[in-house]
Computed example of a mutant assay.
Amino acid sequence: MRRTGTTRRGALTATGALAMGAVLAGCGGDGGTEGGGGTAHTGAQAAAVRADRALRAAAVRTGAGLLARYEAVGKAHPTTAAGLAPLRAATEEHLKALAAGAGKKQSLSFVRTPPVADARTAVKELAAAERRAADAHTTALMTAGPELARLLASIAAASAAHAYLLTELAKETS
């Protein structure tokens, strides 16, 4: 006796075909559809690009401030230069990666740094600045686009690691 009606296999096949059709219909838009739908989509993209640029500019300012602090501590306390050199270099690379979207080379001349205290205190303050930078990058990545969010997450993780290493360096600094 042959079974009649809808089988499980037939239902799954039909559901899959409908889902695939819906996905393909959604992906087929070229932004120039009638009724202004493309304009709204383009407007949303432009707003997202502007938001990412603003987030990137803020991250560049944070990175430039951090790099200026490394410079100030290194100049004021040459004994810490060897311990700060790799962290400073990494911070400079982060700044370059962030500034790549801006199209300008960053100048540190606009950054004001607080006066540098004794070596131990200066390194502790640098660790605190790295923690603040990690927090700022983490907060910013929540609203960033996917590409910028990945970059900010990576830089935030590096800043957190730098903060730890600087805290340990401060313990060893006399």
Rank of each mutant, 00 (worst) to 15 (best):
D52P: 08
G28H: 10
H41R: 15
M20A: 15
E130H: 13
P78H: 02
A14D: 03
D52Q: 07
T62W: 03
A129L: 11
R131Q: 14
V23K: 03
A119Y: 09
A19W: 06
R112W: 05
A25G: 10
A99N: 06
H41A: 14
T167D: 13
A82E: 04
V111R: 01
V111D: 01
H41E: 11
A19C: 09
L148K: 02
K105G: 11
G74P: 06
K124M: 10
A11E: 04
A161T: 15
T33E: 15
A136P: 03
P78T: 02
P86W: 10
A128D: 11
A40I: 11
G16I: 08
G28S: 15
A14F: 12
A102R: 12
G32M: 10
A97D: 09
A89G: 07
G43M: 11
A99E: 05
R2H: 10
A54W: 07
E93A: 15
A22M: 11
A17E: 01
R150Q: 13
A119N: 04
H41G: 04
G21E: 00
V23F: 12
E92F: 10
R2Q: 09
T15D: 05
T6P: 02
A89Y: 04
S159M: 03
A51Y: 05
A19I: 11
A144E: 04
A19Y: 01
T15C: 06
F110G: 12
L169R: 14
A48Y: 02
A144S: 09
Y70M: 00
T139Q: 12
A25M: 13
A47C: 04
L165K: 15
A44T: 14
V111G: 01
G74V: 09
Q45W: 07
E125G: 06
A119E: 13
P146W: 05
A99P: 08
T42E: 11
T79Y: 05
R8A: 13
G37L: 12
G32T: 13
R53K: 12
A14C: 07
D30R: 13
R9G: 14
A134E: 05
T4S: 11
A170Q: 03
R61L: 10
E71K: 02
G32C: 04
Q45M: 15
A102L: 14
K75D: 08
P115N: 00
A46L: 11
A47G: 09
A76I: 01
G5D: 02
L66S: 08
L12V: 12
A134Y: 08
A82C: 00
R112A: 13
R88G: 07
L126W: 04
R9N: 12
A44I: 07
A140C: 01
T167A: 14
R56P: 03
L95S: 01
K96Y: 05
A136V: 09
A54Q: 14
G145N: 06
A134H: 07
G28C: 08
A19R: 00
D118G: 14
G5W: 02
L18H: 05
A160K: 12
G38H: 10
T173A: 12
K104F: 09
M142L: 12
A100C: 04
V73N: 00
K96T: 12
R131N: 06
T139V: 13
A58K: 05
A47E: 09
E130Q: 15
